Amino acid sequence: MIDVAEHLAAVLEAARPLPAESHDVAAARGRVLRHPVRAAVDVPAFDSSAMDGFALRFADVTAVPATFRVVADLPAGTDLDPTLDTAEAARIMTGAPVPTDATAVVPFEDTERGLAGGLDPVTVVAAPRAPGAHIRRRGSDVSAGDLVVDAGVRLTAAWIGAIAASGVGTVSVSRTARVAVVSTGSELVSPGAPMRRGQIPESNSVLLAGLAEESGAEIVLRTSVPDEGDGPRRAIAAAEEAGADVVVFSGGVSAGAYEVVKNTLGDLMRFDRVRMQPGKPQGFGVTPRGTLLFGLPGNPVSAAVSFELFVRPALRALEGDAEVGRTSTRVALAGGWRARPEKTQYVPVSLDRTDPAAWVARPTERGPRGLGAADGLAVLPPRESDVAPDELVTVALW
């Protein structure tokens, strides 16, 4: 057997970043940046008011109350820059340019009548704390040329908002990975179809296609092939015709007599036993055109865990994502667990967050329903002694 890390290293070595493409920043959420983004403008682009109130000269309001003549009204978006003489102020709204002569902004709450007086004289009853009070200086957030987001970051709504605010309209991002999912087995029938003795609903392609889409990939083919014939090779040809970057097989990779993937693709894929439970039998290879081939076990939970450990990191690496793994945390494992000295165990768990300071991980029931209820995987490395009840373990969060 080989270690999980060894198998993953071979996968990531083959997962070369996909071509980059230019996208409008508004359409780039979920994509991975391929080049750093630097600010095109200062943020703020000018000295602006941080409050609704009155712009004035700080030296004129060292003693309060102090009354000022209001000489201008400055809404956001104005280009006016009124001159302010002694005891003169401009009514100003949040985000509006601060007059060049002003050295502070007094919030309307610190005046006698607030904003209700319009351009009538205003009386300040509480002095600003210092020169520059409530003024956001030009470039105080970001200066033109500053790094906004580095390459390798998957763009969230907050990141694309920051990029747009810095004056950048287009970004270079990775193309979406294209995935084909192929289930194997002569016993498979479509979900909901009539079944005879010995047949089962085909669910792995639905499961794995969903996991791939949740990882940001595009599904270009989803199909099943029987245990006889050259179905896997024909599926690869169809996948590559559809533009697939990755083909994921489930089933047909173990040691039985009808392991169709292993029996037909030995020239393209290597088949290993990996020190993990579930999911020991694994296949991986690359076609002459560079398409990544994954052979996962047929058991749905084993297939899902294998996808999580190997396929998902590969999809993220194809996009140039700087973070290919999951966020993990240390959590008490309720009830403990039986140790396995020869392999790492990946246990689907639900998280009890009743006490925010002390989460508890509870193993879910076996089978697909338990997988659906899981919040992550408890990772239990090889060890001789069993995991004690409420012992802290690492949980990779889904």
Rank of each mutant, 00 (worst) to 15 (best):
V189Q: 10
D60V: 08
T94E: 14
P381H: 05
P107R: 06
P348Y: 07
D386W: 10
D267R: 14
A14T: 09
A162W: 01
E384K: 15
P297A: 00
L371V: 03
G290L: 05
V246A: 10
T329I: 06
D375R: 06
L309H: 03
L268F: 14
K280L: 09
R316K: 15
S183I: 01
S328M: 05
A59F: 01
T83D: 11
T287A: 12
I236R: 00
V274T: 09
L351W: 04
G77Q: 01
S174Q: 02
V106C: 08
V149N: 01
A237M: 06
R234M: 08
A193M: 13
V105G: 05
V225T: 10
L207Y: 07
P288V: 10
A130S: 13
S140G: 07
A217Y: 02
T264W: 01
P382T: 03
A396H: 11
V301T: 08
D150Q: 13
E187Y: 14
G161K: 01
T327S: 12
A361L: 09
V347W: 01
F46C: 08
P232C: 02
S183E: 15
G285Y: 02
P44L: 06
L315S: 11
V220C: 05
L293H: 01
S183R: 00
V305D: 05
V179Y: 09
D42Y: 03
P232Y: 02
K280C: 08
A303S: 14
D79A: 13
H23W: 15
A104Y: 00
F271D: 09
